[in-house]
């Protein structure tokens, strides 16, 4: 709103200035009056009017008038303006200056103040945002440190667990090896015992079989009677 007001004010001032200078220039105080004076002097000298020049046959007079008027067209001085222009330009300047002092400068000052306040506010906000960012950064750094610490703790815990697991596995493996050795020794002992048992059984079969054959071959009636008599004597002696 304020921006639009300032822009409209400045645009109006410029238009007013240009309009006033335009009016001053159109009055023809320098070129225009010089041309009119030259034309009037030409009419007086030649007795010809400008309408007479349109008909043709007065090319020489027309050339003379043109040269005279062109002499007026040449700018009087590029540095020093005409007096009327100075008056109109100064008046316009003063009006514009008054308007600027009355409305423009306070508005501009207000805008500048608002702008300064806004910039200060933005700077404050930026500082606050920077502080916030710094706080966030610090928080992130703290969290990162915590995360690193936690990661280190996790790694340490994992390492300890791995160490415990390795120890357990090693102990279990050693136990299993010991059990396998013991089992193998037991198996060997059992196999040895079985072999010895089988061998003893076979030896017993052989020996007892031989003894049975010897006994059967020698157990005639006399031997049977002797065994019976021995049995009777043994029972009677108890």
């Amino acid at each position: 709103m304020k921006k639009r007001f300032v822009i409209a004010f400045i645009s109006g001032s410029l238009l007013l200035t240009l309009g006033m200078t335009g009016t001053a220039s159109a009055s023809g105080e320098s070129v225009g009056s010089c041309a009119i004076e030259e034309i009037e002097a030409f009419e007086e000298e030649t007795g010809l009017s400008l309408h007479d020049l349109h008909g043709g046959g007065n090319e020489e007079a027309l050339q003379t008038l043109s040269d005279s008027v062109e002499g007026c067209i040449e700018a009087p001085s590029p540095i020093i303006p005409e007096v009327n222009e100075i008056i109109w330009g100064g008046g316009a300047f003063l009006v514009l200056l008054a308007l600027m002092l009355w409305k423009g400068f306070p508005a501009v000052q207000k805008i500048m103040n608002e702008r300064s306040e806004k910039i200060a506010s933005d700077l404050d906000e930026a500082d606050k945002a920077k502080a916030d960012a710094q706080a966030v950064k610090s928080q992130y750094e703290a969290e990162l440190a915590d995360a690193k610490s936690a990661a280190a703790a996790v790694l340490e815990e994992a390492r300890q667990q791995a160490e415990v697991l390795r120890s357990d596995l090693q102990a279990r493996a050693e136990t299993e090896i010991a059990e396998m050795k013991s089992q193998a020794a037991s198996d060997i002992e059992a196999a040895h015992d079985r072999a010895m048992g089988d061998l003893q059984s076979e030896v017993a079969d052989i020996v007892v079989g031989a003894a049975e054959r010897v006994v059967e071959a020698n157990l005639d009636a006399e031997a049977q009677a002797r065994l019976i008599d021995n049995y009777i004597d043994q029972v009677g002696s108890n």
Partner: peptide, 16 residues
């Protein structure tokens, strides 16, 4: 009261 040759041979087998 066992005094048989069968039992003696059985005892002999068991002695191994």
């Amino acid at each position: 009261i066992d005094g048989t040759v069968r039992t003696r041979l059985k005892q002999l087998r068991e002695a191994f």
